[in-house]
Amino acid sequence: MKKDLRLERKAGLSRRLFWFLLLLATLGLAGAALVLGSVSIPLGRIPEILLRSGAEQGGNSPEAVILLQLRLPRIIAAFLVGGALSVAGTLFQGLFRNPLVEPYTLGVSGGATVLIGLGILIFGPDVLLLAPLLGFLGAVGAVSLAVILTGRSGRLGVERLLLIGVMISFVCSAALVGLVSVAGLDRFRGLLYWTMGSLAGADPAAVAILLPVVGVSFALALGRAWALNALALGEENAAGLGYDPEREKRLIILLGSLLAGVSVAVAGVIGFVGLLVPHLLRRLVGGDHRVLLPAALVGGGFFLLACDTLARTAFSAQGIQFPVGAVTGLLGGVIFIALLSARRAR
């Protein structure tokens, strides 16, 4: 693990270049996403439409509504969810010092799915109307359970926490299979779609929730950047540097779970983003969290936006709306493997 996959440090100028390119690419992508879709709205008209929509009386023009109510929220939501998942992944990977950890490892996705599943079992498919809330509660609940089970001796051992989190995920999967066998797959079809993750339901309300939660969580996480760097040296060394490892750990887990939980609430379970993006960025920009966290936010947002735009436009003529979780997995997996091979070849 030590030698082959390392990247030499880039000089300061290169870092600026990186940011410039990334932001430029993101803006470009956002523009493309605004334009693409079954209703074609040429780029040139967009500013005009946006400006006029404020003054329009009664029913806004169809294009304005499509842009403002459908596409723009979806774009913003995709960016925020992708960013949130990546930042959460970065936080957890930094905390557990394990590059294979992703935001769902502690049982976030399992908890969310099982709670909704239970709701459907008891109250019927109408419960799916409450899916965002239940999903969030289930997600945060699962992590809380993991933390409580681990921290009984007062000390939150990260290895133990990881193990317990993984166990909880397994238990949730098994429970879900059990639920489905009991009540039949039909009832859970809606849940199945939900677990595949989708940004189609992102409306202005979703954005209104995402923006503050992700914004605040990210800001707080950024404040812990030095602590995360210190923790990378080992808990005792971090303590020697004046940090309280227990407090930092709990805070980081809280922030990571919030980010993952709100993502799951809005978009269902979208996998791979929280694993791939932090991992990739670590190679590109190094392990300093002051840079890594913002890079994860933008990089993750970019990645998910790209995947979502692809998912909804690629096959729409054939009547297929690809689940975005599949695109992230496929695209992400391919990129990851390609990069690994390229490194080795060097």
């Binding site: 030590k2 390392r6 990247l7 440090r9 010092r97 030095w226 760097n229 210190a230 990378a232 040296l233 080992g234 808990e235 005792e236 060394n237 020697g240 540097l241 670590r282 190679r283 190094g286 392990g287 300093d288």
Partner: peptide, 20 residues
Amino acid sequence: VLFQDQVGPLNITVREMVEL
């Protein structure tokens, strides 16, 4: 205080480490 064995091969510059 320094516990050597806990520090893995981190991908940050030496300067950044010492900044820590």
